[in-house]
Amino acid sequence: MQQAKKKYSPLNTLMKADTKWKEVKKNKAFYIMLVVPMIMLAIFSYGPMYGILIAFKDFSPGLGIWGSPWNGFEHFTRMFDDFLFLRALRNTIIISLLKIIISFPAPIIFALLLNEVRQMNFKKVTQSISYLPHFMSWVILSSMIVEVFSPERGIVNFFITLFGVEPIHFLASKSAFIPILIGTDIWKEIGYAAIIYLATMSSIDPGLYEAAEMDGANRFHKMIHITIPSIMPMIIVLFILRLGSMLNAGFDQVLNLYNPMVYEVADIIDTYVYRAGLEQFQLDYATAVGLFKNIIGVLLIVGSNAIIRKRSEHGIW
Rank of each mutant, 00 (worst) to 15 (best):
V265W: 01
F292S: 05
T287G: 03
I180W: 08
I186K: 12
A249M: 04
D267M: 05
M15R: 06
K22T: 01
M38R: 06
K6R: 14
W138M: 01
L247H: 07
L247Q: 05
M144L: 10
P151C: 05
I101T: 12
E116D: 07
Q119E: 15
I178W: 03
G207C: 07
R78V: 02
V165P: 05
R242L: 11
L171G: 04
I39Q: 04
G303R: 14
S312Y: 05
R153W: 15
L181V: 13
A193S: 14
G154Q: 08
S312Q: 03
G303Q: 13
Q280W: 07
N259V: 05
T161S: 14
F281A: 07
I129S: 13
Y209E: 11
W138D: 02
W21F: 07
R309G: 13
P133W: 09
A17T: 07
W66A: 08
I316G: 04
T287A: 05
L171A: 08
M234S: 06
P167Y: 03
N256M: 00
M49V: 14
S230H: 08
K6Q: 12
A266M: 13
S96W: 14
N115W: 00
R87H: 13
Y8N: 03
Y8P: 02
I140V: 00
S245T: 10
K6C: 09
I95A: 10
K5N: 09
A106H: 06
I43N: 09
I240A: 05
F59A: 00
F251K: 09
V254H: 11
F80T: 00
N218F: 02
F177T: 15
Y209K: 00
N248R: 12
R118P: 12
N259C: 05
R311G: 06
F80A: 00
Q119F: 14
P233S: 02
